[in-house]
Design a protein around this nucleic acid. Sequence first.
DNA 1: CTATGGCACGGATT
DNA 2: AATCCGTGCCATAG
Length: 507
Amino acid sequence: MDLSAHGDAMFNAHLQDNRPQATAHLAKTMGYLQLSNTELEAELLKEVDTNPALEIVDELRCPNCGRRLRSLPCPTCAAPAADGSAVVFLSPRQPGGLREAVNEDDDLPETGMPERLDEYILRQIGPALTIEERPVAAYILAQLDENGLFAETPAEIARYKRVSLKTAQHVLELIQRADPPGVGARTPQESLLIQLGGLNDADAPAPGMRNLARLLIQEHFEALGKMEYERVARRLRADHNLYLAPGAIEGAVQYIHRNLTPYPARAYWGDGKTSGAADGAALTNPDVNITQLDWAAGGGLSVEVFAPLSGWLRVNPEFKAAATEGSGEERERWGQALAEAALVTKCLQQRNHTMRRLMQLIAEAQREFILGGDGDLRPTTRVQLAQALGLHESTISRAVAGKSVALPDGRVVPLAKFFDRSLSVRDRVRTLVERESQALTDDDIAEALAAQGIQVARRTVAKYRKMLGILPANVRTRQARARRVTQNLPKGRGPLPTRLGTQPTPA
DNA sequence: CTATGGCACGGATT
DNA sequence: AATCCGTGCCATAG
């Protein structure tokens, strides 16, 4: 890995050469750095629009031999751009991808599985939508929270998107009938009901179980959460004159737990946490792509920095030639435009360069995480990265802010995720609970983690657990019991809990 | 008495 | 300087 601050050295040399320009350069580079490619697109278009000296061309030809080129130093005549002015290659393949004129391999593997929830749903309902309904659907999908729920009412949609209430309702219903069952519901409760509607009576472990479940969700949702089964049973007997076999409620609850989820999106996206609060656009348009070169041989990771436009951004050579011939005031103006154009390309290059170095370092340090899962993330701080790169920490902050990266397996994660201190620990908590044979209390989990060399307070475990949407241990025990009952399994205890090498605490 | 969740404090991070 | 995060203490529920 190239850790030498080669580029920075050049940059700094440039700094010393000419002060006033240097500060402008710095300011602009930083400005660009903190833009995501979506934002940068607007910025660049504006520049090109206002500055006649800048141009975007579809293809680049060598200034000497006129051959079409992919990257800047012409391979045949090895001539750099005549004046050394920067040219930036904007990758044409991603709608709006850009990469630096360095990396040549052009085989972007079409990863099949990476799909955002919204795209996934849109694909299902797309054909059924009229032209008028499309924007409404897009709006709703964009507003889905990380659990796949949608907080607004049809009336609000209608008002906001200026369509009839009927249209809004229709689109919403379409979405709610789409695949992650229960998606688009307003509340967890509603989501459960929708999902329940999709289930078949035949699947229920006992006749009437589905109806009971519906009653429970509809009328006693609160109490259900509090596990007040006795009270609920009494109310049901009174209100509906129902005969309830002992354990029926528990059975229904267990039925609900097994077949429904209050968070429809999570089932599909595992942990699908869009931690960066619904920045859907950022996650559809990654700023960086990481691919694995030689998959089978566990090959290296290749980092590719995207930008929004296609083609080549450069100083228009004809304009440049003409500019020297002008006279007087005109010449002055043109000179300024030229300087500005050069600045833009340089800064863009600088941004790319910084991003590239940063990502290469991250890719190497977090190889495990990139190829593996959340549990393999090695917590890093921006400060550490800054030191390793010889940059200021605020530079890293800018670079990380609001960007996202596509990983080899198709996941698109916010860049900030690489700096999540507790991600790996949370993941460990999850696997611990998944593999538990007897509900582990928070203390148990903390203990097990300590055995793995991770020292966290019990209170912290509780928080992680909540973040993961895992219920408290005492509730999990009751669920387990209900499961045993309905499945007529022997009541005996299963294998001992996985305490992972720790001493069983004396009772 | 045990297991959790709420509040708030201090230190680290941005 | 503002924010985030882990943690300790305390109240509460079972």
